[in-house]
Design a binder for these strands. Structure first.
Length: 913
RNA sequence: GGGCGAUUAGCUCAGUUGGUUAGAGCGUCUGCCUUACACGCAGAAUGUCGCAGGUUCGAGUCCUGCAUCGCCCACCA
């Protein structure tokens, strides 16, 4: 016997364990229906599961379970990311806070700090693993991967070496985004621009007046730049030199003309500081100038060049520098309300100071790729390959509009700085000894080699994720094998790459998705995935981002799972979720889907437990033929088949929310509210065949619904499935299935004929029932006893149908239906229009005021006439028939006929009164 | 500055290639513990579909402009 209510918390972990024990998450190995693979975007190995993860897991699990249901050889590969900067910062901060070590790097040294990080990660990875399980994720844990595991680290080094030898990775002095707080570089994409109100200063610079918001960088400036077409400066020549009295004394400056200067801004003249500004750096490169001098140190303090300001913090020095310039009579004016944006680090939120440093880069514009797509023979740059694979449709991005942002991003893409000055991560496989340089997968032999202290950008290793995780770790341990060997000999790679879908948040399209395409096309010669499904952000009810800083607005997925179950949370996250759009989540929504789970549970309870075991014991049923089913049974089976078709279509079109909604409506509406209620009538029958057949249809419909629902709500469906076992023994054999729902195949129900005619008849029946219920409720207060309904006027076929279903009609509407000939005591008439039918129903209620009645009817008549006229005009219009589809014309004609009929009926009645 | 998206019931959102009287859930109101479910059943009320034009027999849906909100990108020092 099933419990009265479904309590998710009591069964979920148990069910998950059973799935794992049955190894249900591993690929079946049967590739007849094709293979399917998703690489799980690795959550950071730090931290807790948040709603972003939850949406990702829900969507991917639905895709995965659906693939399994369709019999595909399915793999969803889980893993975690070492999250270099985030993790290192966190561990360092913990050491400072908990162990009072002021400067852990200094005190402990590289090895010890790394040990602490590894300890920390081991612990938090275990946590996140558990949390991923709680969502019901059916990923294959036996293949769990981690960016820092040996096999992946090896691949990282292989790729570095390959790209270095191919001339794509190089080292050079470049302007980088330096984060003085974290003491590392940050990539362009890891920047955030924050609006800030500042002062904007105008200074005399020789004959010019220049504008700047950063006087503290200006010590070494010796170039002033204007726009080539600026009439105000037409008298000066490009390259002309002149003497300037500047902050720390007289200098010789040079004038440059460059179109990058905006003549409208400030005075149209500026000085450049290549060492601390990206635009200036590019301008210096363009005119082949020297790169100037470093003014600000890596610690964010002024250097010797600043003269007496040396060692000062920028913020503190700025006003003093301005003061000095003013004293020298160089300050022209100050604009106090200057609004601009400053760059801060996405991770640490520290102010970014551009600096020139020696860094490792990947060249994106160098034409070297051997990409074997439709462009064999051409030599393409990495950038071009990135564009081609999406433009030519090898990779499809959902929603499509993100193509544009993607292309735009690529257009502006500069060489990717891959080195980071932190310790946690893959160390750059480059060793030096004096002037010797060694680049290799393993350390060079011999003494005194020093390895580059920097590590690689986290995204370097994540960019390899779709395939580095499919390489057999045992093979990767063999140094004799080349990267090509590893790929060719790893069965998982051969079976599952390119992966089917990359499902992730649109916020990391550039960080990650684009880089996977870049690194995979180049190093493997394959696309990493066929489709990119980008989900949106989860927001609060009023559209705000959920953040840790305001815990009262944010929802903890783990709390919700505990309270409402993982299934409810999954549905709440997925219904209404369309690719690329944000969704709002709030507790009532989750509660609503919890209710649905309970509804499903109870409907199942009715189906499975409404008859005692003894009843089933005596029952031996053969599979009924189509004609044996009652019209209502045929109807529900037809609806079910149709829903299945639609759900499959939506899922294949990645419309996950729509598919879920469809099933929700079918189960709650068609199945529970109507079919089960209709069926109660059959179950009361004295004829065991009638009862058995009714039970059969309930079972079949429920079983198939459970299969369809399983990807969305795996726990409750599996829990119900468990109770199916002993009941199914009495059912025809084609329903017998695997003991676990997770491994069941969807299949399709045999011999179902969906009929639009039948659907129309049933919806007419439903509409009449609804309207009778309403009428009954209206009369409820006054009417005593039974209400008699007489079918007076009805289109022949439909009328026949309605009369044949009279028992159901009267049961569900709570009215007693009498035969057409039966006497009716009083004569108050109401009309019910239902689809293409007009019924007149008579109630034994007190006779109403005739005048009032007439007035009402008259009003109705006028409306009907208007609609009739409109309809006639429409059909009379040539364009209408010329352009509209036939079905519309037919419908319009039917509507017209009906209106004409109704009009006559009304006229007759008015006459009678 | 450039690009993208959103605007439909009190709230959160559906609305397929233009086509019957624009839908759902939550909330509200009314009546029900009808032996699957009160996490429920039955019923009701609520909409100038952001604004202004245009195309069309017909526009929530297509076009133009405007407004408000949100996001992304960008080198105005």
């Amino acid at each position: 016997m099933m419990d009265k209510a479904y309590v998710a918390g009591q069964v979920e972990s148990d069910i998950y364990r059973r799935w794992e024990e049955a190894k249900a998450f591993s690929p079946s190995g049967d590739t007849t229906a094709g293979s399917f693979c998703i690489s799980m975007p690795p959550p950071n190995a730090t931290g807790q599961l948040h709603l972003g993860h939850a949406v990702m897991l829900a969507i991917e699990d639905i895709m995965t379970r659906y693939a399994r249901l369709k019999g595909k050889n399915t793999l969803w590969l889980p893993g975690t990311d070492h999250a270099a900067i985030a993790t290192e910062t966190l561990v360092i901060r913990n050491l400072q806070k908990n162990e009072k070590i002021a400067d852990p790097r200094q005190t402990l040294g590289r090895e010890k700090v790394l040990e602490r990080i590894v300890d920390y990660i081991e612990h938090s990875r275990a946590t996140i693993r558990e949390q991923v399980r709680q969502m019901g994720s059916s990923c294959d844990w036996s293949r769990e991967s981690y960016t820092m595991q040996d096999s992946l680290s090896r691949v990282v080094r292989e790729v570095f070496v390959k790209m270095y030898r191919d001339g794509l990775i190089y080292r050079g002095p470049r302007l980088v985004n330096w984060d003085p707080k974290m003491q590392t570089t940050v990539s362009d994409d890891e920047l955030e621009h924050v609006e800030e109100k500042a002062k904007f200063y105008y200074f005399k610079f020789g004959p010019f007046t220049i504008g700047t918001a950063r006087p503290e960088t200006k010590f070494g400036d010796k170039y002033v730049v204007v726009h080539p077409d600026d009439a105000r400066y037409a008298q000066y020549q490009h390259g002309q030199t002149f003497a300037v009295e500047w902050i720390n004394g007289p200098i010789v400056a040079t004038l440059l003309k460059d179109a990058a200067v905006d003549p409208e801004f400030g005075t149209g003249a500026m000085t450049i500081t290549p060492w601390h500004d990206a635009v200036d750096f590019e301008m210096a490169e363009r005119h082949q100038l020297d790169r100037g001098q470093q003014v600000i140190g890596y610690d964010g303090k002024l250097l010797a060049l600043a003269g007496e300001f040396v060692g000062m913090d920028i913020q503190a020095a700025r006003p003093l520098i301005v003061e000095k310039l003013q004293a020298k009579g160089l300050l022209v004016k100050v604009d106090d309300h200057y609004l601009h944006k400053v760059a801060v680090s996405y991770r640490g939120k520290g102010m970014i100071e551009p600096q020139i440093r020696e860094q490792w880069f990947i060249a994106v514009n160098k034409p070297v790729s051997t990409w074997q797509g439709k462009w064999t023979g051409q030599s393409l740059s990495l950038k071009q390959v990135l564009q081609q694979v999406v433009r030519e449709g090898d990779i499809r991005i959902l929603p499509k509009r993100f193509d544009k942002t993607y292309f735009h991003w690529i257009d502006n893409l500069r060489d990717w700085c891959i080195s980071r000055q932190i310790w946690w991560g893959h160390r750059i496989p480059v060793w030096t000894r004096g002037s010797e340089v060694f680049v290799g997968v393993n350390a060079p032999a011999g003494e005194a080699w020093l390895q580059d202290p920097d590590t690689l950008d986290t995204w370097f290793s994540s960019a390899l994720w779709t395939w580095s995780t499919l390489i057999d770790p045992a093979l990767a341990a063999d140094p004799a094998l080349s990267l090509t060997d590893l790929l060719q000999r790893s069965p998982d790679f051969q079976t599952f790459h390119p992966t089917t879908v990359m499902e992730t948040g649109y916020d990391i399209l550039f960080f990650w998705v684009a880089r996977m395409i870049l690194m995979t096309t180049y190093n493997v010669g394959q696309i990493p995935f066929e489709t990119v499904y980008l989900h949106g952000l989860v927001r609060t009810r009023d559209g705000k981002k959920m953040s840790k800083s305001s815990p009262e607005t944010s929802i903890d997925p783990l709390d919700m799972i505990q309270k409402y179950g993982a299934d409810a949370l999954r549905l709440a996250l997925v219904v209404g979720q369309t690719p690329g759009n944000d969704t709002k989540l709030y507790e009532e929504k989750i509660a609503g889907y919890r209710n649905f789970c309970n509804k499903l549970w109870n409907a199942s309870r009715f189906v499975l437990d409404s008859k005692p075991d003894a009843f089933y014991a005596g029952l031996k049923l053969v599979q009924p033929e189509w004609k044996d089913f009652t019209p209502l049974q045929q109807w529900i089976l037809g609806e079910l088949a149709q829903v299945q078709k639609k759900v499959e279509k939506r899922l294949e079109a990645s419309k996950i929310g729509d598919a879920a909604q469809l099933l929700y409506d079918f189960v709650w509406g068609d199945f529970c509210d109507w079919f089960i209620e209709f069926t109660k009538q059959d179950l009361r029958s004295a004829d065991p065949v009638v009862v058995a057949r009714a039970q059969y249809v309930l079972m079949v419909t429920l079983a198939q619904s459970l299969k369809l629902l399983h990807p969305f709500v795996p726990f409750v469906t599996e829990a119900i499935w468990e109770h199916f076992g002993h009941r199914l023994q009495t059912m025809p054999t084609d329903l017998v299935h695997s003991p676990l729902l997770i491994t069941a195949k969807l299949g399709s129900l045999p011999d179902i004929k969906t009929s639009t005619k039948l659907q129309q008849k049933v919806s007419a029946l439903q509409m009449i029932i609804s309207q009778l219920r309403e009428k009954k409720q209206q009369l409820g207060a006054t009417a005593k006893g039974q209400i008699y309904v007489k079918v007076v006027e009805v289109e022949a076929v439909l009328g026949e149908f309605l009369l044949s279903q009279a028992a159901y009609l009267s049961a569900l509407a709570g009215v007693l239906l009498v035969a057409a000939e039966a006497k009716v005591e009083t004569n108050r008439a109401i009309k019910i229009s239902a689809g293409t039918v007009v019924l007149e129903l008579l109630f034994n209620e007190e006779s109403a005021d005739a005048g009032q009645q007439k007035q009402k009817l008259q009003a109705e008549l006028t409306e009907v006439e208007q609609r009739r006229v409109h309809s006639e005009q429409l059909l009379g219009n040539v364009n209408f028939t010329g352009r509209a589809p036939e079905a519309v014309v037919a419908a319009e004609q039917a509507k017209l006929e009906q209106l004409q009929q109704l009009q006559m009926l009304l006229q007759e009645q008015i006459k009678k009164l």
